[in-house]
Amino acid sequence: MDMMLVPAAFLSNNGLQVNPRTLPRLHRLFGHWLVGSIHFIESEDIKSLNKVMHSVLLDAYTNEWKISVIDSANSFDPFIIDHYAGDDLDTSDILGQIHLARPFQALQTLSLVQDVSRHITGPFHLLLAPSFPSLFRQAIEEDAYSGIEVTLLQSIRLLQQLAVRGATIILTDTIDDGAFIQPVCKVHVRQRRISNDTWLDQLIAHPFLPPVEFKFSENGVKKVPSQQLTLDDFF
């Protein structure tokens, strides 16, 4: 099954704007396009990124996907889930279906990726990893562990294998516009201006790369040309 790669979220001049009303569209994205891929969302807007994360979780739940969260930022908030669930959904059941663990340093991140990789066998499994590179970045900055780059590489290879198996993997990271951040894994195409006052953050695909995008399928990884999308594609 070949999949098309599309952005999973988008930025406007007002930052990453997602509210519960966009859920049906995210659901549409999930249902048809996002299976078997790695997506990397970067934003300066932590709050919006957090909203995206929780709405994606809810969307996966409504589609009866299995859900695993590796929460490097300790940012999962059950009360946001409760808020989004409203009266129609049973919050307790949603929380019961979201399997979550929090790494607090880079080696633990790898350990959790290894752990989750044992349980993901096919599609319809969402692995969400908020602030995934943050602990690696921290370890590199603090020079905390020797060979941390190898650990990062191992983690990303495992994620690739999971994507090939059909899992949908969404990684997020926050970026600070002013401060210099040591790049540890560049996996997305940066924002593009698509009209005079609108920016699109195109999200992808493959770690360590690049201006081209990759897609994952049962036959392995194939290089495909970048998709040019506009916001109209979403609305």
């Binding site: 929380l95 399997h99 979550l100 633990q108």
Partner: peptide
């Protein structure tokens, strides 16, 4: 390397 275990939230 011992991390928290996966648990229902």
């Amino acid at each position: 390397a011992k991390s928290e275990r996966f648990k229902p939230s």
